[in-house]
């Protein structure tokens, strides 16, 4: 598998890297560098991968702590079982591979060996949603839907390098099993230095009055970019970032939504079973029936192609966001 993916613009970037880097400050491998630093303070941390060390950014940890790093090969069930076993003898096991392989292939092991067993396993799942251009086999477009069905599992979808780094540290102290939709390669640094990730708390990233955007993952960054563009055309949108998918911040989402006549929900995931479904459930229970546009993926399998091509084709790109804010469609 080639490390470098060709983009439609003719330039190159690392496979699975975000396209939202133009003109932005980025940080390379924030997951791996933060894990290596944290592991220097926490000797109980071990790191694992299933033949996806390079593409999950865990190599800085491997290089710093080779005796605490284990590559189990292309064996995702084994990855999760071994991580659970390590947890049972007192370790905090950070493990990585692509989101698809964790969720579709190792589901029973995440559910029973980890979540049910309260195993201290922290899964950093790479290239969620459309971030991978290798087609449906590599695109975890239903992972939130699957994983939210597991009891006692924490699910986090960070939006940039700043939040991802805080999450790497935070999960070490969150008991039990955590599933994180990780970001790799050159990751934009967009949040202010005073941003603080809080488990189960949605955060307002941008104030506004005309329309409320509720989003998760790196779509929150795109929502903010789109809101800035729309503000220049006289429509002021607010952005609520739902960094924790489970436990879901129902109260925060309801309080935010109550302030708007129009809502947009955006996610790097199908519009069924993920954030949009969670928001609809919360608002319905609260008696709120505000009109809502869902930006996300259809219930389908998706093509191979560059991220630019795929996001435009499946209508989750920046112009789609701007249109939704300005034209209410």
């Amino acid at each position: 598998m080639a490390e470098v993916a060709q983009t439609t613009a003719g330039r190159t970037r690392g496979m699975g890297e975000l396209i939202d880097v133009e003109g932005k400050t980025t940080e390379i491998a924030p997951f791996g560098t933060t894990l290596a630093a944290l592991a220097a303070e926490r000797p109980e941390i071990v790191g694992l991968t299933a033949d996806m060390g390079r593409y999950s950014d865990i190599l800085p940890f491997r290089d710093a702590f080779p005796s605490r790093f284990f590559n189990v090969g292309m064996a995702e069930q084994d990855l999760i079982m071994i991580a659970a076993g390590l947890s049972k003898v007192g370790k905090i096991a950070y493990c990585t591979t692509y989101s698809v392989f964790i969720t579709r292939r190792a589901y029973d092991f995440v559910a029973i060996a980890c979540a049910h067993s309260k195993a201290n396993v922290k899964i950093f799942a790479g290239m969620p949603g459309l971030v991978n251009g290798y087609g449906a086999t590599h695109q975890a477009t239903e992972d939130l839907n699957m994983m939210r069905g597991i009891a006692d599992l924490t699910i986090i979808d960070p939006c940039d390098a700043t939040e991802l780094k805080q999450v790497v540290r935070a999960v070490a102290d969150i008991p039990g099993t955590v599933y994180v939709r990780s970001l790799r390669g050159k990751v934009p640094v967009e949040l202010n230095a005073d941003y603080r990730f809080e488990l189960g708390k949605a955060k307002v990233l941008r104030e506004g009055s005309a329309v409320g955007i509720i989003s998760c993952g790196y779509m929150s960054m795109r929502a903010r970019d789109a809101a800035d563009i729309a503000a220049g055309q006289g429509v002021d949108a607010a952005v609520l970032h739902v960094g924790t998918i489970k436990p879901f911040d129902r109260d925060g989402v309801v309080a935010f939504a109550a302030g708007f006549d129009r809502l947009i929900v955006a996610e790097n995931h199908k519009t069924t079973g993920g954030l949009a479904s969670l928001v609809v459930e919360a608002l319905y229970d609260a008696g709120i029936m505000t009109p809502m546009i869902k930006i996300g993926l259809a219930d389908s399998f998706f093509e191979c192609g560059s991220q630019e091509y795929l996001e435009a084709k499946y209508e989750v790109d920046l112009p789609r966001f701007v249109r939704a804010i300005l034209e209410n469609r």
């Binding site: 390590l86 370790k91 067993s117």
Partner: peptide, 18 residues
């Protein structure tokens, strides 16, 4: 937690490594 077969050896591998 037993019951779902195919879990024990892998978890034992993790324990033995740790």
């Amino acid at each position: 937690v037993g019951g779902s077969l195919g879990h024990g050896l892998g978890q034992s591998v993790g324990m033995a490594i740790g």
